[in-house]
Design a protein around this nucleic acid. Structure first.
Length: 551
RNA sequence: GUGGGAGUAGCUCAACUGGCAGAGCACCGGACUGUGGCUCCGGACGUUGCGGGUUCGAUUCCCGUCUCCCACCCCA
């Protein structure tokens, strides 16, 4: 068996000391959220596929090709116990498609659908027939069955002989007289199942982002009854895309959502400004310099509809001169044309209408107000009329924070308002605004080394000689109980080795504990940076270590 | 999914047009039996990403494949 020695593509291990950096970020982030009165929410790491299709948008790349989706219900480890021949009526073929890899085109043909069913671990699953079958011909069924069995002789022989049977499944729970007659004439045993025996599995997806999950939870737990909800999350997300700088298939996001009934102020521009100011404060507190806030409004759904139409008309005469990507975008998602980096296209793009020209009065006022508050707060921003958002649920305010050190993937976080999302998912009206920070990229932008935030042991205890481990364990327990970081050596180590190790670990003190010290009750405490050593009675150890911490 | 670059010791990297796979750092031990950093001496360290081909001989050339990096597509 091949050894598994590598993390799968696009995933990675976060190792110490780098994890210290991540913990540092988490700590700072939680502290900021605390002062803005946000509370943590933790949603499941997978949800029903439908949730993401409905919120993120069926047509987005995320949903159409970048999600980790799987069917719940077909056991990964299966054991063939019995093999059946089957034919089922076409109207239930859809219900049988619980394993896409096993069923495909051949099932779509003919008046009846024919295949082999295997009873695996107490569940029915379907084995793809090798040829399209166009009619119920028992002779044909037998032929396929024999071929199939021949191919799998080795696995099947361990299971003993298999009785050929005909499995009939129909929507009405029963055999058609035609099939019954055929089976009888061939002396084949018949088992009849109803459609209810084939429960379609649930399609699940590893979350590609967390806003959908939060809004789902908001609806599920009637969170609107609390008024305004200010929620944050930190956790892994999953996207099946080609790895690149700062882009992993399991990546981490820090995000927050402000959501609630409009009467609770959730629709107010004050919320937008508060979120943006929070982010500015957060980046500053993390010591990230040189960030830029790009701001735009993409209006409400109506504005966007009118704008899309105008954009389409404006593109009509000029799109032929644009790059092939843009021609494709013009057809699929015209807004994305503004992402184009091809120099030759830029003059054309400059001439296109801008979404800001199409904002209705409330949207315009909202956007103006956001800007005014930001100015009052001294948060610097740049209007970027070309900033558009890819996900379906966004409305009005859209923003990104970018950072120079991140290569082509220069966005460190992004977000915006999503006033219609709750209703799109079947919930109550609940305007909201949120953002998500790519934590992998945030850590990259920190410009700080893990060593700077790594906590070093304060005391290294060096037991000297046989029998000293016991006493030193006691000492360690005592010090740790007083919140002192202690590393413990071993009585077999020579003192030289202990000192070396302690020095490498960056410990402040070495506590020397040999037989002499034990009998006199006075221990050697050596300061590794000054090289000075003093004799400290056991009762004073804690006090001495504490007292010198500041030095 | 597409294009380009790269993969050699734990890390950073050498190895000429194909000829015994190396250095620095790190690691372990000793000099020094209870006093670190400096120094000296010694030690361990590899399926050259994986698989195939050409060759007397492949880290080197060819093909395939995997992974990483950079960019595209796209995106919080």
């Amino acid at each position: 068996m091949a050894e598994i020695t590598k993390a799968v593509r696009g995933t990675r291990d976060l190792l110490p000391p780098e994890t210290a950096l991540w913990n540092h970020v988490d700590r700072v982030v939680r502290e900021i959220f605390r002062t803005y009165n946000f509370q943590e929410i933790r949603t499941p790491i997978f949800e029903e596929t439908e949730l993401f299709a409905r919120s993120v948008g069926e047509e987005t790349d995320i949903v159409s090709k970048e999600m980790y989706t799987f069917d719940d219900g077909v056991p990964a480890e299966t054991l063939i116990r019995d093999v059946w021949l089957s034919c089922h009526a076409p109207e239930i073929a859809g219900r049988l498609r619980f394993n896409e890899r096993l069923i495909n085109e051949p099932y779509r043909q003919g008046p009846h659908e024919i295949g082999f069913n295997a009873f695996w671990n107490g569940r029915w699953t379907v084995v793809r027939p090798r040829y399209p079958v166009t009619s119920v011909d028992i002779r044909q069924i037998e032929l396929y069955a024999n071929e199939w069995r021949k191919e799998r002789q080795e696995e099947l022989s361990e299971l003993g002989p298999i009785a050929p049977r005909l499995l009939v499944v129909t929507a009405q729970n029963g055999l058609t007289p035609e099939i019954a007659e055929l089976a009888k004439s061939r002396a084949i045993e018949i088992e009849s199942l109803s459609i209810a025996d084939f429960e379609p599995p649930q399609s699940l997806t590893l979350r590609p982002e967390n806003t959908a999950g939060v809004v789902r939870a908001y609806i599920e737990h009637n969170l609107w009854q609390r008024g305004l909800n200010k929620l944050y999350y930190i956790g892994p997300q999953f996207r099946r895309e080609r790895p690149q700088k700062g882009r992993y298939r399991q990546f981490y996001q820090i995000g927050a959502e402000v959501i609630g009934p409009a009467t609770a102020g959730s629709e107010s521009p004050a919320r937008d400004a508060e979120i943006l100011e929070l982010l500015a404060a957060l980046l500053d507190k993390l010591g990230i310099k040189d960030w830029q806030l790009q701001l735009n409004s993409i209006g409400c759904a109506d504005d966007r509809a009118r704008y899309n139409e105008a954009l389409g008309i404006a593109l009509q005469p000029v799109k032929g001169q644009m790059c092939s990507d843009c021609q494709r975008r013009a057809a699929v998602n015209p807004l994305r044309i503004f992402d184009c980096k091809v120099p030759a296209d830029q003059p054309i793009i400059e001439q296109l209408p801008r979404i800001t020209q199409f904002l209705d009065e409330p949207c315009r006022r909202h956007f103006d107000e956001v800007q005014k508050i930001l100015q009052a707060l001294g948060v610097r921003f740049e209007l970027n009329e070309r900033l558009v958002r890819g996900l379906d649920y966004y409305t009005r305010t859209a923003f990104e924070f970018t950072h120079g050190a991140l290569g082509a993937q220069n966005a460190i976080l992004g977000g915006g308002r999503y006033d219609g999302l709750s209703q799109a998912l079947g919930g109550p009206p609940a305007p909201g605004i949120g953002f998500a920070i790519g934590e992998d990229r945030l850590v990259m932008a920190l410009g700080k080394s893990a060593e700077e935030v790594l906590e070093r042991p304060e005391v290294y205890i060096a037991p000297l000689g046989p029998g000293m481990n016991k006493e030193c364990a006691r000492l360690a327990r005592e010090l740790r109980g007083h919140d002192i970081v202690v590393e413990l050596g071993d009585e077999s180590f020579r003192l030289k080795k202990s000192l070396e190790t302690a020095s490498k670990l960056g410990a402040k003190y070495v506590l020397i504990a040999g037989e002499n010290e034990l009998s006199t009750g006075v221990f050697g405490l050596k300061n590794l940076s000054t090289g000075k050593q003093q004799a400290v009675p056991r009762d004073h150890l804690l006090h001495t270590i504490r007292g010198q911490n500041g030095l």
